[in-house]
Design a protein around this nucleic acid. Structure first.
Length: 383
RNA sequence: GUGGAAUUGGUGAAGUGGUUAACACGCUAGAUUGUGGCUCUAGUAUUCAAGGGUUCGAUUCCCUUAUUCCAUC
């Protein structure tokens, strides 16, 4: 069956909303954070550990699995769920973002994208049809349309041309889409221009997708611009379908996204930060390599319920990360993902209680101190 | 006891009679947003064992002391 989104409640003062998504592999609540498992594994974590994090759904990547081990092998294994023995919902990204980071503008044509494999330099050609075909075989619960992620800044003319292309690609993908158990999302592009976001969102709706994503954010714009892009997109999306903000996972960005009506998020940040010895905390990001934690025998966060916080001290985790021991990255991944899923749990509670703005204010005060965050730039390089 | 060699940062070390002492590791910080998994960026010896001398100028030459290593009785 296709996924089914149910809107349960809207927050009084903002566009925030809570709901549920039913899938063939269980139902989960939204807003939700989705960890990234590019190569059919959330780096370092077992399926059981993922269930324990209460993350609801995970993301895997079409581009990477296409190259290795290949969609046919995964299909032979019985699909992505069986292959990786993960019995929760899985969303697959289309490869559009990889193209964004691997291809040059001149390699993108209306037909598809020419680019070189990041593994061995082999010339590759990816089209909307191919992306969907691969995703159909991977048999994820949600497949994404193949889109063009627009760089920032981009001229209005380029954005207009690119949005037209993304729309054509969305339609072409939808035409060849062939998997009863799978849902397909369209992706709203349009850069920072409201009329483009609107045009893209409305055009996609005419094609009638099972859900809608917001793409092209977190590509080098400042946070204020990013929030506008989100606003300009959710504003024109239907309330009875899921909204997914792609690639966003900075805690404050999740809060701002939820306030603008986003339901799900994905991001490599919690796991990448973990591999680089960083942990999210209520009082901001900390670097466990810092010498000040050498003799700190308290958990990462006193009130966190994750396996890392319940069992280990900062001093021990610092010891692990300074020696590059695998367990260090694992424990920090567990904590960081749990930090974000706890954040979404808090946000769902706020939506119930209509106090999300107060929550945000308190969060910002703790996380950033008195510093403002609106002028912070996103990094803008994709991988 | 005698003869020889050496002594450069936390470590391994390069180097030169003349402005800021190479490089590597370590260490100290920072970065990281639809993941190219151990990455990237920056900082880290006002000083060359200690003292004295030669010289316009010495970490580089000379002397003394200390320490280490090798050979020999």
């Amino acid at each position: 069956m296709k996924i089914k989104y149910s809107l349960l409640k809207k927050e009084k003062n903002t566009d925030a909303r809570m709901g549920t998504i039913e899938t063939n592999y269980g139902t989960f609540k939204t807003p939700m954070f989705m960890p990234v498992g590019t190569r059919a594994t959330v780096k370092g974590l077992s399926p059981q550990e993922l269930y324990d994090l209460n993350c609801g759904i995970i993301l895997a990547n079409t581009y990477h699995l296409w190259l290795r081990p290949g969609e046919d092998l995964i299909s032979k294994a019985g699909g992505l769920h069986k292959f990786m023995n993960y019995n929760g919902p899985i969303l697959t990204d289309s490869g559009g973002f990889q193209v964004f980071s691997l291809a040059r503008p001149k390699d993108i044509t209306d037909e598809g994208v020419n680019f070189k494999s990041h593994i061995d330099g082999t010339k590759l050609f990816l089209t909307p049809e191919k992306s969907i075909e691969i995703q159909n075989k991977l048999d994820s619960d949600i497949a994404m349309s193949f889109d063009e992620c627009i760089p920032y800044p981009a001229t209005y003319d380029y954005v207009k041309k690119s949005v037209e292309r993304t729309l054509k690609w969305a339609l072409r993908g939808k035409k060849v889409f062939n998997n009863e158990r799978q849902s397909l999302f369209g992706i709203v592009q349009g850069g920072e221009y409201e009329d483009m976001r609107k045009y893209c969102a409305l055009s996609l709706q005419k094609m009638d997708f099972d859900g809608y994503a917001i793409g092209g954010t977190s590509v080098g714009e400042d946070k204020e611009t990013m929030y506008k892009m989100v606003q300009y997109s959710t504003k024109y999306l239907p309330t009875d379908k899921v909204r997914y903000l792609m690639g966003v996972g900075d805690p404050i960005d999740i809060i701002e996204g939820v306030i603008r009506g986003v339901d799900i998020f994905d991001c490599v940040l919690p796991t990448r930060l973990a591999r680089h010895a960083n942990a999210f905390t209520k009082y901001g990001k900390i670097n466990l390599k810092n010498s000040k934690y050498k003799e700190d025998f308290t958990p990462l966060e006193e009130d966190c319920d994750c396996y890392a916080c319940k069992n280990f001290t900062k001093a021990y985790i610092r010891h692990l990360v300074t020696l590059d021991e695998m367990l260090g990255a694992r424990l920090l991944s567990i904590h960081n993902i749990r930090f974000l899923t706890r954040l979404t749990e808090d946000l769902r509670e706020c939506i119930k209680n209509d106090n999300i703005l107060e929550y945000k204010e308190e969060f910002v005060k703790n996380y950033y101190g008195s510093a403002s965050y609106l002028d912070k730039k996103t990094t803008g390089q994709g991988d």
